[in-house]
Computed example of a mutant assay.
Amino acid sequence: MATLEVGQMAPDFALPDQNGNVISLADLRGKVVVLYFYPKDDTPGCTKEACAFRDLNHELAEAGAVVYGVSRDSVKSHEKFAGKYGLNFPLLADETSAVCEAYGVIQDKNMYGRITKGIVRTTFIIDRDGKIARIWPKVKVDGHADEVLAAVKAL
């Protein structure tokens, strides 16, 4: 499992979004990227987090950042999720888990005494040069998008 640190180059990726467009980190150089990993489309915590980023997306854009959500759900699942909640940023489909593995967000999770491998909610800010500027491991959803906005403004 990858362990990434602030100051390291962010692992590059190319993933399809909910519209089938391939998004590459290399193509985003020169922009601040908020990359948040979440476990599953249309579940309570993930919906709350996505809607919080949706509601602050305009302010994040004014601060120079672009937001991308990443999970292992399919393009079709992302399309439904984004449409249902009016999400105004791309959701990236990492169906092979390669990007999740590269960012170290696939970890053991204990649910009711059963250990499974899954995405641990994690957010990265990647600076204009492609380096990791900030990491939030094991994100608690309440107030998180506001914290991310404050961090983007401080860059």
Rank of each mutant, 00 (worst) to 15 (best):
residue 18 Q to S: 08
residue 18 Q to Y: 03
residue 18 Q to K: 04
residue 21 N to G: 08
residue 21 N to Y: 09
residue 22 V to E: 15
residue 22 V to M: 13
residue 23 I to G: 04
residue 24 S to M: 01
residue 25 L to T: 11
residue 25 L to H: 06
residue 25 L to I: 09
residue 26 A to H: 10
residue 26 A to N: 15
residue 26 A to D: 13
residue 28 L to W: 02
residue 28 L to E: 11
residue 29 R to P: 01
residue 29 R to W: 00
residue 29 R to A: 04
residue 30 G to N: 11
residue 30 G to H: 11
residue 30 G to P: 06
residue 30 G to R: 10
residue 31 K to W: 06
residue 32 V to I: 15
residue 32 V to N: 02
residue 33 V to Y: 02
residue 33 V to K: 00
residue 33 V to D: 02
residue 34 V to Q: 03
residue 35 L to S: 07
residue 35 L to H: 05
residue 36 Y to I: 15
residue 36 Y to D: 08
residue 36 Y to V: 14
residue 36 Y to M: 11
residue 36 Y to S: 08
residue 37 F to T: 08
residue 37 F to L: 07
residue 38 Y to S: 09
residue 38 Y to R: 10
residue 39 P to E: 14
residue 40 K to D: 11
residue 41 D to Q: 07
residue 41 D to R: 03
residue 42 D to Q: 05
residue 44 P to E: 11
residue 44 P to L: 06
residue 44 P to V: 01
residue 45 G to R: 11
residue 45 G to E: 07
residue 46 C to V: 04
residue 46 C to N: 07
residue 46 C to R: 10
residue 47 T to L: 09
residue 48 K to W: 01
residue 51 C to V: 08
residue 51 C to E: 08
residue 51 C to K: 14
residue 51 C to W: 00
residue 54 R to P: 02
residue 54 R to V: 00
residue 54 R to E: 10
residue 54 R to T: 01
residue 55 D to G: 13
residue 55 D to I: 07
residue 56 L to N: 12
residue 57 N to Q: 12
residue 58 H to G: 14
residue 58 H to L: 13
residue 59 E to Q: 15
residue 59 E to P: 02
residue 59 E to H: 05
residue 59 E to T: 07
residue 60 L to C: 10
residue 60 L to V: 13
residue 60 L to M: 14
residue 62 E to I: 10
residue 62 E to T: 10
residue 63 A to Y: 06
residue 63 A to G: 11
residue 63 A to D: 10
residue 63 A to L: 14
residue 64 G to E: 13
residue 64 G to F: 12
residue 65 A to F: 15
residue 66 V to T: 10
residue 66 V to L: 13
residue 66 V to H: 00
residue 66 V to M: 09
residue 66 V to C: 03
residue 66 V to D: 01
residue 67 V to W: 04
residue 67 V to P: 01
residue 67 V to S: 06
residue 68 Y to I: 13
residue 68 Y to H: 15
residue 69 G to V: 14
residue 71 S to C: 08
residue 72 R to L: 03
residue 72 R to G: 15
residue 73 D to I: 07
residue 73 D to C: 05
residue 73 D to K: 03
residue 73 D to H: 03
residue 74 S to K: 09
residue 74 S to E: 05
residue 75 V to G: 06
residue 76 K to L: 06
residue 76 K to R: 12
residue 77 S to A: 15
residue 78 H to W: 01
residue 79 E to M: 06
residue 79 E to P: 00
residue 79 E to G: 04
residue 81 F to C: 07
residue 82 A to P: 00
residue 82 A to K: 02
residue 83 G to Q: 02
residue 83 G to Y: 00
residue 84 K to Q: 10
residue 84 K to Y: 00
residue 85 Y to M: 03
